[in-house]
Nucleic acid binder design. Structure first.
Lengths: 395, 395
DNA sequence: GCACTAATGCTCAGTGGTGAGCATAAGTCA
DNA sequence: TGACTTATGCTCACCACTGAGCATTAGTGC
C-alpha cells in the first residue's frame, strides 16, 4: 500500500476566510473561491454578496476569459476604513495611518526618549496619530483598529509590557488605554514580531522566515508557517545575548552584564562605539551607517565585520531552523550590501549546504518603514478576523 | 476599548477530533465532549454511538457524580488493532508491535550495518516484524499501520530518504514497499522527529519542545505547538554540525569535512574516540556510557564535558526558541545525570534568565525505547486521522 | 424516602450548506 | 453566425447540525 496521501489542504470557506483569500490574491473571482475552498457555488455566491453588501468586497470589472464567460473580478475594498500604526523606538516614535491594505496614507515621527516613561511617550504618540489622521483627511470614526510595536517583551493578550529591560517604568503599563479616543481595538506586540509581519507583507506566504532586526540592539522575529512564533514565555527570537567568541579573542562587556553577547559585538551601539574608538567623525549610529553607505573604507569594514559576526550566529540558526528566507531590517540594515555580504559570508561558510543552498538572505526594502507597516498589518489582521467580519456582514 | 479578547479556542467536533479528545484524556464522557467542543448534545451522542459501533470507543463504567447522575465514562479501545514500529539505527534495527495507545506488546532487535543497503536491512526489519507479531499472538490483518524512523532526512510524503549522508545507497529508496505484506499505510520520518513524538507521549500537550538525540551523532527534533516542525527542506533540527569553539582551543576534524562541529566534539563517536585516547578499557560507545553510569571518574568527566559542550549550543537555542522543555535521548542519554548536569551547567550559565528560569531539562525515561514508541505514535496518529476514522464509522 | 441535580436518550421544528438542474450572460473558436 | 465554453443566478429536494422540550436514569443531600 502506498504511504501518506497528499492531503488536499481543504481551505476554509467562512466569510472571514473568503475575504482573506481575496485580500491575499489567492482567489480573484467567485469561481476561484469555489475551486479553492471546495464549498458549493451557492454558499460562495451568498457569502460574497454579503461581503459586498458590507462594503468589504467590491466587484471590479471582468477578468480574462479562458474560453467562456469571463469571471467577475472581486477586490478587497481597502478604503473601507483605516488603521493607525505606531512604531515605538528607543529614541523615536513614528506613527502612520494606512488603508486596510497597509498602504501608508500619512506618517509622522518625533524624537523621544523611551525611558521618559509611558505617560509622556504615549501622549506624544497619540498627538502624532491625531496629526496624521488630519493630514490624511480622515475622521476618528474611520479608524478600525490600532497596532503598536514596542522595543521589548509584551503580553500580547493584554497589551502590557512585561519587565522590558530597556523601557524603565513601562512594566505592566496598559498601552491600549492611551488610544481610547478611538473606539477601536488596540494590538500591541514586540517590535521584531511586528517587523516580521511587515516583511511578510499582506499576502505573506506560508513559509518559515527569520526577520533579523539590527538596530541599537539585535533581535529576531520568527515566522513559522506564516505565523508569528513566540515561544514559552514569549521571549523567542531574543538572539541579542547569544554568546559569541570574538574573532580576535577580546572580551567585550555587554550591558546585560555578561561578556561577548552578540549585540555587544555587532549592533548599532557597538558600531558607534567602535567607530568612535577608530576616530571616525560620527556622533550617532546613523552617522556610521551613512558613512558606510557612502563608501567610507573604515566604516564599511566595521559594518561588514558586524555582518560577519551576526552571520556566525545565523549560520547555527539556519542549521537548526532551516528557514526559507532571512530578512535583515532595522537601522543598521540601511547600510545595505556591506552588512548583507558580511552575513552571507559567514552563513554560507558555516551552515550546512542542504539548508543554505536555497536560502534567500536579503535586506528589507525599507528598514525605516517596516515597523509601521508591520504594526498596520497586525492591526488589519486583528480587525479583519473571523468574528469582526461576521459581525460586519450581519449588521 | 480593551485590546484582544481571549479566544475561547473553539475545539473541533468531527469524529476524529472526538476520538482524539478521548484518547488524550481531554474529555472522558459525552457531557465533557459537549462542554469541550460546544457542539450540541445530539451531535455528540450520535457520533459517540458511531465510534462505539466502529469499535474505536467503548463505555467503561460510571464516573464520579457531581451531585447528579454520574457520567458514563468513555475510553479509547486501544485493542482495536495494532501497529508496527521500526527503529532503523546505524548499527541496529529494532522492531516492536504496540496496541493503539503505543503500549509495547512485543519487541525484537538485530545488529545490522545501515550501509549494507536498503534491501538487506529492510528484509531483516520485515523478518523481525513478522517475528514480533507472532510473539504477540497477532495476525497480519490486525496491523493498522506501520511507522519507521530512519537516521537521515526523509521526504515524508513519499517515505523515501533524501540524500542521507550516513546511509549510502538509500537515497530515494521506497521504504514503504518493504512492508507491502501488510495492507496498511507506512509512515517514514527522520529518527529525531520520531523520537520527539515519542517523548511527547500520547497526550502530548500543545507545547514547544526540543528533543535532543545524542547517539553516534547529535540531532534535534523540534516540536512547535505540539506538532513536528520540519523547516524549508525538512532539515530543521540538524544541529550536529553547528560550529563550536573548543574550550581548549584545539581543532577537531568532523566527518563532514569541517572542523569543530558539535558532533565532532560531543557525541557517541567523539566519546569513544576520547575514551580510547585516554586509555580506558572500552570498544564501543556503549562501554563508555556504562563506565560513566557505574561511576568511573575518567568516563564520567568525559560525559559531563560532552554535556557542557552540547549545553553551549543549547543555550543559544534556548534564547532563540524559548522552549517549554528540552528532553535528551539517544544512546549517550543512558548515562543520565552526568550528561544532564553538564548540559544544565552550560545552559543555565549562558541562556537568558527569562527563558531559562522555567525551562525544564530532562533525560528520557527510556532512551532505548523512544525510537520505537515514537514510530508507533506516528503510525497511530497516521491511522487515526480524520479520513480513516470517517471511513471506519461509515463502513 | 423525597427533593434535587446531572447525564443521557429521544423527538421535532428550524436553519444553513450541498448538489443537481435549469437558465442566462458573455466570452472563444471555427 | 452558430457551436461551444465558462461564470454566474436561482430553485428545490436533501441532509446534518442545532436548540428546545420532554422523559428517563442514577446519583447526592437531608
Amino acid at each position: 500500500m502506498s504511504p501518506v496521501v497528499q492531503v488536499p489542504a481543504q481551505v476554509s470557506a467562512t466569510p472571514g476566510a473568503l475575504l482573506h483569500h481575496v485580500r491575499t490574491g489567492r482567489a480573484k473571482s467567485r469561481a476561484e473561491l469555489v475551486a479553492l475552498t471546495g464549498a458549493s457555488r451557492n454558499t460562495i455566491s451568498n457569502r460574497v454578496d454579503q461581503l459586498i453588501a458590507a462594503n468589504l468586497l467590491a466587484e471590479g470589472g471582468r477578468g480574462w476569459s479562458t474560453g467562456g464567460r469571463p469571471p467577475t473580478l472581486l477586490q478587497f475594498n481597502a478604503e473601507a476604513g483605516c488603521v493607525l500604526a505606531v512604531d515605538l523606538g528607543v529614541t523615536s516614535v513614528d506613527v502612520a495611518v494606512t488603508d486596510l491594505s497597509a498602504r501608508v496614507l500619512a506618517t509622522a515621527g518625533h524624537p523621544i526618549d523611551i525611558s521618559a516613561g509611558p505617560v509622556a511617550v504615549l501622549a506624544e504618540a497619540e498627538r502624532l496619530a491625531r496629526e496624521v489622521l488630519t493630514e490624511a483627511g480622515l475622521r476618528d470614526e474611520d479608524v478600525r483598529s490600532v497596532g503598536v510595536g514596542v522595543p521589548g517583551p509584551v503580553e500580547f493578550s493584554t497589551g502590557r509590557p512585561s519587565h522590558p529591560p530597556i523601557m524603565p517604568g513601562w512594566h505592566d503599563h496598559p498601552i491600549p488605554d492611551a488610544f481610547g479616543r478611538w473606539a477601536a481595538p488596540v494590538f500591541v506586540d514586540n517590535d521584531v514580531n511586528v517587523m516580521a509581519l511587515g516583511e511578510m507583507g499582506v499576502g505573506g506566504s506560508v513559509q518559515d522566515v527569520l526577520v533579523v532586526k539590527v538596530g541599537t540592539g539585535v533581535g529576531c522575529g520568527i515566522i513559522v508557517e506564516g505565523r508569528v512564533y513566540r515561544g514559552a514565555q514569549g521571549s523567542a527570537g531574543d538572539i541579542g545575548h547569544i554568546h559569541v567568541p570574538a574573532a580576535d579573542g577580546r572580551s567585550v562587556l555587554c550591558r546585560c552584564g555578561n561578556t561577548n553577547c552578540l549585540e555587544a559585538l555587532a549592533s548599532g551601539a557597538s558600531l558607534l562605539r567602535d567607530a568612535l574608538a577608530a576616530g571616525l567623525p560620527v556622533t550617532t549610529t546613523r552617522d556610521v551607517v551613512e558613512l558606510a553607505a557612502h563608501g567610507d573604507g573604515a566604516a564599511l569594514e566595521l559594518v561588514r565585520d558586524a555582518g560577519r559576526t551576526i552571520g556566525t550566529v545565523l549560520a547555527s540558526l539556519v542549521n537548526f531552523f532551516n528557514p526559507h528566507r532571512i530578512v535583515v531590517t532595522g537601522g543598521v540594515a540601511r547600510a545595505g550590501l556591506p552588512l548583507l555580504s558580511g552575513i552571507r559570508e559567514s552563513v554560507y561558510a558555516r551552515a550546512m549546504p542542504l539548508a543554505a543552498r536555497t536560502l534567500d538572505i536579503s535586506v528589507s526594502d525599507a528598514p525605516d518603514l517596516s515597523g509601521r507597516v508591520g504594526a498596520a498589518l497586525m492591526a488589519i489582521e486583528g480587525y479583519l478576523d473571523e468574528d469582526s467580519v461576521r459581525e460586519a456582514i450581519t449588521s
